[in-house]
């Protein structure tokens, strides 16, 4: 500093209270109310925390490079709790379907849908109603010590044997989550060596479109996909 500041240099003191003279936090009124972590005012009478639940979200997207990276980047960046994500073609040329199974609270599910909707290649997105048809494909390699028993369990769960060798048997299972879980429990007795699961995919029942506003196209039954 160059030189001492003389009294004349210093501006006149503000006549209003200096910060240190203002009431301290404990001297002020504070409201009783509170919000929960989701920013919802807590109604003391009706205090209900949102439970997380499983939801199937279906999105119709433009089949352009990077669309999967955009969706998966969004999910990880915003810490959405996701169980599985599948992609495949639709009946419309140039459109793909992304099916996500998430475990979130209602506000969380709402956020996922809204954030997805903001991605430019996303045409429409929505939760598939609770009674949607869902299925997953599982490939399972088990020990072949007791081939007859493996075969019986495979039959019981409408599976198919894809490969049977001297030491291992590989089967294919399909079905909704509950069915797959039951089947895996049953196969565990043989010793599961490897497993590959596609994740759940889903369609709405009846006339309801799976993604909001979705219309059938003319691409027919797609036989190939290159994503």
């Amino acid at each position: 500093m160059s030189g001492d500041s003389s009294a004349a240099d210093v501006p006149e003191a503000d006549s209003r209270p200096a910060p240190s003279e203002q009431p301290a936090p404990e001297e002020r009124d504070h409201p009783e109310g509170r919000r929960n972590l989701e920013g919802i005012r807590i109604d003391p009478v009706l205090e209900a925390e949102h439970e997380s639940r499983r939801a199937v979200i279906s999105a119709l997207v433009e089949d352009e490079p990077g669309v999967l990276a955009r969706v998966s980047g969004l999910v990880s960046r915003r810490q959405f709790n996701i169980e599985s994500l599948t992609v495949g073609p639709t009946t419309v040329e140039g459109h793909s379907r992304i099916t996500m199974v998430v475990e979130e609270t209602d506000p969380g599910i709402d956020q996922i849908e809204k954030q997805m909707a903001k991605l430019k290649p996303v045409i429409s997105v929505g939760e598939v109603s609770g009674d949607a048809v869902t299925a997953e494909l599982v490939l399972l390699k088990v020990e072949a010590d007791d081939p007859a028993a493996v075969h019986a369990v495979t039959e019981m769960y409408d599976g198919r044997t894809l490969d049977a060798g001297p030491r291992t048997i590989t089967v294919q299972l399909t079905g909704d989550e509950a069915r797959i879980d039951d089947a895996l429990d049953a196969f565990r007795q043989f010793g599961i060596i490897e497993i590959a699961r596609t994740g759940q995919t889903a369609l709405a029942r009846g006339d309801t479109p799976t993604a909001p506003g979705e219309k059938p196209g003319t691409a027919g039954e797609p036989t190939t996909h290159d994503d």
């Binding site: 500093m1 500041s5 003389s6 009294a7 210093v10 501006p11 003191a13 503000d14 209003r16 209270p17 200096a18 910060p19 240190s20 203002q22 009431p23």
Partner: peptide, 19 residues
């Protein structure tokens, strides 16, 4: 009135940025 944005300018302290 109670919580104005003010700052002190004591003579023995250097130039205040708010000023």
């Amino acid at each position: 009135e109670t919580y104005p944005l003010t700052y002190a300018t004591p003579e023995d302290e250097p130039l205040k940025p708010q000023f």
